[in-house]
Computed example of a mutant assay.
Amino acid sequence: MKILFVYYLPSGGMETLNRQRCLALQKKGITCHLLYFKNGAGNHNIKNIPTFITNDDHQIQQIIKKENYTLVVVSSDYLFLKKLRDFGYKGKIIYEVQGLGEEKYVNQILQSIKSHITPYANGLLYPNTSHLKKYFQQHYPTLKQYYFHNCIDTNTFCYRSLTRQPSPIIGWVGRLEKNKNWEGFLTICHQLMKNNPSIKIWMFHDPTLATPEETDRYNKMVNDLQLKNNLTTYSNISHDQMANYYSMIGDSKGFLCSTSITEGFGYAVLEAMACRCPVLSTDSDGVRSFIIHNKTGKYFKNTTDAVNQAKQIINDAKLREMIRTNAQKHIQIYFHPSQYAQNFLKLIKE
């Protein structure tokens, strides 16, 4: 059995998901290939998975004909479904969504792309996230739907005991775009630094995915809030190395701050928790599968609340250690690759 996973480029959570699930399915004897339409920052993470990077229709058609895939999973790019059928592919097609940005736009988006999906797809795949489930079931009642947790291999991506940093570190992972709400994050950091000027800020983002206008606004805000001396920006860090950074943030008495308006899943939150890094997050829907308030992480409602919750993480050692331990166990139990592979095998058989 052979499966092809298709996405725009290897970057962010989709790159992580594709790599993690391919390795999980390979252990079940399934051959997995990846197709990306252009190169991306996460390409160097991919090992031992046959990967094609091309947007040439003729090349893609030749790949489809040669490899004779049992199943093709197309993430996000709904226009590619018709192309696949035009290429002569007669096997099963699953259309996948891991997130569509702010919830207020999801209903409209899924309604507007329906004519590009229903005639060509055999089913739908998305995380077990309430807003995605609600709108997919509303607009696609005739298509078979599959929704289950994504996975992470906590045997390889896990806590590492490294040199302890002298000051609390606040981490942030994402893209410089509205839904990720980087402005909210910088505002929280600014407020926290009023009480503790030694706090360090680590931001992980891919500058190639940000518009020039967004980058200019970001740089201006960093300067206006006088964050520059405390801020370190990282880009193109290998996935394996991210476990080191999450571990160091957790050991510094700091935390990962997730400020997203809406998340379909939220891989950065999952990864941080696997590495014993506390998470302070908005209730962005997708993270509800991971975060139980004051047990496996913390939620905040606004900037003032975020500052108060952050101070608890930094200053209350007992609470912090309880959250770190509970979060790590939660991820190990409920997001294991073998569970994902089992769910995916059911999808294939149906």
Results as ranks from 00 to 15, higher is better:
E15P: 00
E15M: 03
E15N: 13
L17M: 10
L17Q: 07
R21C: 07
L23F: 07
L25N: 02
I30H: 02
T31S: 13
F37A: 02
N39D: 15
A41H: 09
G42H: 05
H44Q: 15
N45I: 00
K47T: 15
K47H: 15
N48F: 14
I49A: 04
I53P: 09
D56L: 06
D57P: 09
I60P: 07
L79W: 08
L79D: 12
F87I: 02
F87A: 06
F87P: 03
K90N: 11
Y95Q: 03
V97W: 02
E102K: 11
E103H: 05
N107H: 12
N107W: 04
S112Y: 01
I113N: 06
H116W: 08
P119D: 05
Y120S: 05
S130T: 14
S130W: 08
L132M: 04
L132D: 04
H139R: 06
P141I: 06
T142P: 08
K144M: 09
Q145Y: 09
Y146E: 04
Y146P: 07
Y146Q: 01
H149K: 13
C151Y: 01
T156M: 08
T156L: 13
F157M: 10
S161G: 10
S161Q: 14
T163Q: 13
R164Q: 14
P166L: 08
S167I: 04
P168Q: 06
G171V: 07
R175V: 01
R175A: 11
L176F: 02
E177V: 08
E177G: 11
K180S: 04
N181S: 12
Q191F: 10
N196K: 08
H205N: 13
P207D: 07
L209K: 13
A210L: 04
P212W: 01
T215V: 12
D216E: 15
N219K: 14
N219H: 12
N219F: 06
M221S: 09
M221L: 15
D224E: 15
K228H: 12
L231Y: 05
Y234G: 09
S235Y: 10
I237Y: 07
D240V: 06
D240K: 14
Q241D: 15
Y246K: 05
I249A: 00
D251M: 09
D251V: 12
S252P: 08
C257L: 07
T259M: 03
G266N: 03
G266L: 03
V269W: 00
A274Q: 02
C275A: 07
C277K: 01
V279L: 00
V279D: 00
T282E: 00
T282Y: 01
D285G: 04
I291F: 02
I291R: 00
H293E: 12
N302R: 02
T304N: 12
V307I: 06
N308W: 03
Q312D: 09
N315H: 11
N315R: 05
A317T: 15
A317N: 15
K318M: 11
K318E: 15
L319W: 00
R320L: 01
R324Y: 06
Q328D: 11
Q328M: 13
K329P: 13
H330F: 06
Q332G: 10
F335H: 11
Q339L: 15
Q339M: 14
Q342Y: 14
F344P: 04
L347C: 06
I348T: 03
K349L: 10
